[in-house]
């Protein structure tokens, strides 16, 4: 047995309209969930990019949670349904990669379900603890090769445009998370 218990790195992509608020509520109403869970706020889980999920694993996450509104309650009608499909797709991809699809899960909560959020987050963390580390050796990510400047700038203006990342990372402490 290792000296220290495995503390998994878990990233939760949370919809601002529900899960993000639920996490906040969990904190303020003192429902505990694991400290290792880090929250990324999205305007809607429909914004979930499959590439973001994979890169999250590549950058060292042991589990990824996508938390959206209850079915039928999406602020944008069907964003959470799209997210569900993408989570299923990436889950299959994880299996092909050699990672377990259980490392990725979609949950649905409302803004008022703070306790439920804490419960699901803890349960997921336990699952990941049982699965253990991903086994990936951490490496610097590869570089993106810019296109030949002189020839392709004109042709390629749009493709060259930097893909602005509209995700913003939130410090878990700032949303009243309380696990000692």
């Amino acid at each position: 047995m290792p000296d220290t218990e495995f503390e998994p790195q878990i990233i939760a992509f949370c919809c601002m309209h529900c899960a993000y608020a639920a996490a906040d509520l969990a904190g303020s109403s003192r429902h505990e969930y694991p400290v290792s869970l880090k929250i990324v706020a999205l305007p809607c889980t429909g914004r979930t990019d499959m590439g973001h999920i994979l890169k999250t694993f590549e950058d060292g996450a042991d589990g990824v949670l996508v938390a959206g509104c209850l079915t039928g309650r999406c602020h944008y009608q069907s964003g959470n349904l799209y997210a569900k499909q993408r989570v299923e797709y990436v889950g299959d991809l994880l299996e092909q990669i050699g990672l377990q699809h259980e490392r990725l899960r979609m949950i649905n909560v409302s803004a008022g379900m703070g306790a439920r959020f804490a419960e699901l987050a803890s349960e997921f963390t336990e699952t990941i603890k049982l699965l253990g580390p991903t086994g990936l050796t951490k490496k610097p990510r590869s570089k993106e090769i810019p296109l030949a400047p002189e020839k392709s700038t004109k042709l390629m203006q749009s493709t060259l445009a930097k893909n602005e990342q509209i995700i913003h990372w939130v410090d878990p402490k700032s949303i009243g998370k309380s696990v000692a």
């Binding site: 994979l54 590549e58 050699g98 991903t134 590869s142 296109l147 392709s152």
Partner: peptide, 23 residues
């Protein structure tokens, strides 16, 4: 590429993969 980097890494034969797109 993200998938392949992880897959080859887990298989013990990591391949470094750079990415680009042409029009």
């Amino acid at each position: 590429c993200s998938a392949l980097r992880m897959a080859t890494d887990l298989a013990g034969e990591p391949v470094e993969i750079d990415e680009t797109v042409v029009q």
